[in-house]
Every structure is written in structure tokens, then in C-alpha cells.
Design a protein around this nucleic acid. Structure first.
Lengths: 173, 173
DNA sequence: GTATGAATAGTCAGATCTGACTATTTTAAC
DNA sequence: GTTAAAATAGTCAGATCTGACTATTCATAC
């Protein structure tokens, strides 16, 4: 429901057509969602079926008709309850790259260290990029703070793992 | 490719049929993947098409024929390169529940604190549960360590956020 | 004026994923 | 020995998602 929540929340502020929605999401919210354009159109149609949004053609002037979506009262109710249930919930994400650790013993020790070092530098770059972003508006700043906090925690973890590998190696020699 | 990697990696150790694979994943690897049974069967068939695995019917005795999957040389090559590329990569997960923060201003201040407190207690429970799990084998222990490290970081972050809200409230009064 | 590229708005076939189901065999209880 | 429950093995229709595409309009440069 996160994607639906996002769309509903944006439509609450202002009625819009799909393209405008995706434009906003792409340029401002890429940290918190991977919603793609065709999915957005698909979800808008689905939500129209549920009666969460209504759509009317806006054939302004010469341009071909645009489908402008607007949130309904039902949509607002859904938004409010979903918003609350998501704030209180906690669902750990899957670290899909972690699958490798299951097969840790397949990788020679030197490779492990080298590859982890690369991972570490990617994280460091991400941190630098995030720190460059100027203060955002309202809640989006919380989102950025969270991401940054998370990245720093990941950095620390990888550093510890590398250190552990290095000290193990020293012990062996 | 994480799901394919997982299946290939397990088939490397031992040829198996889909049910056995899923049994192992469900009972040991639920932390790192959300692979479900029908998806596993789908992926096995796909990988058979790619020549990464081969399948032969095992009609042992009375039971209806089982499809036993086995990794091929090509599959092993794919596994090795995918394993390495995943170890060096870092892709931050999407905290889908964070979508709420975009609409932070919609929620009354008291609700915010209450709901975050619930979130916090869920995290604390998860931590307790993870700490109960006895030492695992090999790489899987790294996976558990990572998850625990992450959860503690999340706990800290939520605590900080709650604290910030509380001090803001005091200032206002 | 017109060719070219960017912006605008959306669609579609095909890939991926899953809830709910089928079907058989084994185990256990009586 | 028969019935019920659990274990075993898999399937399928339908939901969800996306890469690649279409189609129109606007800007600009020549």
C-alpha cells in the first residue's frame, strides 16, 4: 500500500494527471520509492476502480485530452488510516545483497576483503552525496535524515566486518 | 538476481526439488529473502530455460514423479560472477514505511509520538527475538549480525526522533 | 518555414510474483 | 483397518510491475 499511499497523499494537495505525479516523484522522492511510471498509471486506474480517486478528461485547447485525477472522500479515509498504520508499523527491509553471506565460504579470503572495500567506498560516496543535498521541506527532511543515519550505520558495520577479516588474517600468519 | 543466486547457491551444495529448497529457505533464510514457493518454481523453470540448471524426473517408488534440479557448469559460472558482483555492490533498500514522513504535517503531534512509540516497541521485540537465536553456521551468522546491527540502529533513530518531538512539545508550552 | 530535439502524456506486451488451490502419501490415533 | 491430520510436491489464475514503445506539442536554431 505504500505506493497507493504516496499517490493519494500527493493528490490530496492538488489534483494532477499521471505525468505530473511521476515528475514530482522522480525528482523529489527517489530516496523512498521505486515507483515507475507505468506502475503509477496502473495504480491510478486501480484506485479509480476502488473509488479512491476520480478522473476527468481535461481537454484544454489543442493538446490531446489529459486524465486529471482527484482524490475522493473515500480516498481521503483510506489515506488517513493507511498513513497511521504505516507510521506505527515496522517492517525490516530485505538486504537482498546479503544473500552472498550465505555463500561466504565460497569466496577466497583476499577477495572478500577487496570486494567489501569496494562496497564500503560506495557507501561513503552515497553519504557524501546525501550530505550535499540542502535542507529539504518538512517531512522530507526526516526521510533524508533517516537515510543518512542508516548509511552511516551501514558504513560502520562494513568497517567492522573488514577489520574482523584483517585481524583473522594476521592471526593466521 | 538475488533470488536466482540463492537458488543456485543451494543447488550447488546438493541437487534438490523445489519443495526441499523452499523448506530450507522458509526455515533458515526468512531474514534475507521473501522468496515464495510459486516464485521459486517459476524461477527454476526460467533458469532451466537459460541452461543454468537441469531437471530430471525422479520417480522413486510409488510417489508421483518429483522434478529434481541440478546446477550446470553454466549455472556455476553465473553463480560465481553474481556472487562477487553482489558482495561489492551496495544498494540501499527502500524504507517503504517512510513514505509517511512525506505527509508528516497531516498527523497531529500527539498521534505522531504515540505511533512512533508503537513502532519503537516493535523494533525492540524484533531485537529480543533475534538475540534469542543461537549461534548459526558460517555465513548465516554474518547475516544475523547485520540484521541485529541494523535493528539497533533503527531503534536509536526512532528514539532520537521521539525525543526531538517531546522536547519540541515542551518548548511550545 | 522547417528540421531537430526536448518536453509532455500515456500505452502495451511481456516479465514477475503470489494467494489459494489440487493431489498424493505418510503418520497417528482410535 | 479406517479416519483425520500432517507432510509432500506442485500448479494456476490473476495481480503487479516494467522496458520499450507511441504520439503529440513546444522550443530553437538555422
Amino acid at each position: 500500500m505504500e505506493k497507493e499511499l504516496l499517490l493519494l497523499g500527493l493528490l490530496r494537495k492538488q489534483k494532477m494527471h499521471g505525468y505530473r505525479l511521476m515528475e514530482f516523484i522522480d525528482s523529489n522522492l527517489h530516496i523512498c520509492t521505486d515507483l515507475k511510471k507505468p506502475t503509477a498509471y496502473y495504480l491510478l486506474e486501480k484506485m479509480e476502480g476502488f473509488g479512491w480517486v476520480i478522473q476527468h478528461e481535461d481537454s484544454n485547447g489543442k493538446r490531446p485530452a489529459k486524465k486529471v485525477y482527484e482524490i475522493t472522500d473515500l480516498g481521503e479515509t483510506i489515506f488517513q488510516s493507511t498513513l497511521r498504520s504505516h507510521l506505527e508499523k515496522f517492517e525490516p527491509p530485505f538486504f537482498s545483497n546479503d544473500t552472498v553471506y550465505i555463500f561466504w565460504d565460497t569466496i577466497p579470503e583476499l577477495d572478500r576483503i577487496n570486494l567489501l572495500q569496494k562496497k564500503k567506498s560506495i557507501i561513503e560516496n552515497e553519504i557524501k552525496n546525501l550530505e550535499k543535498i540542502p535542507e529539504h521541506f518538512g517531512g522530507t527532511q526526516i526521510l533524508l535524515d533517516h537515510q543518512l543515519f542508516f548509511l552511516k550505520s551501514e558504513q560502520e558495520w562494513v568497517e567492522k566486518l573488514i577489520l574482523k577479516l584483517l585481524t583473522n588474517k594476521v592471526k593466521q600468519t
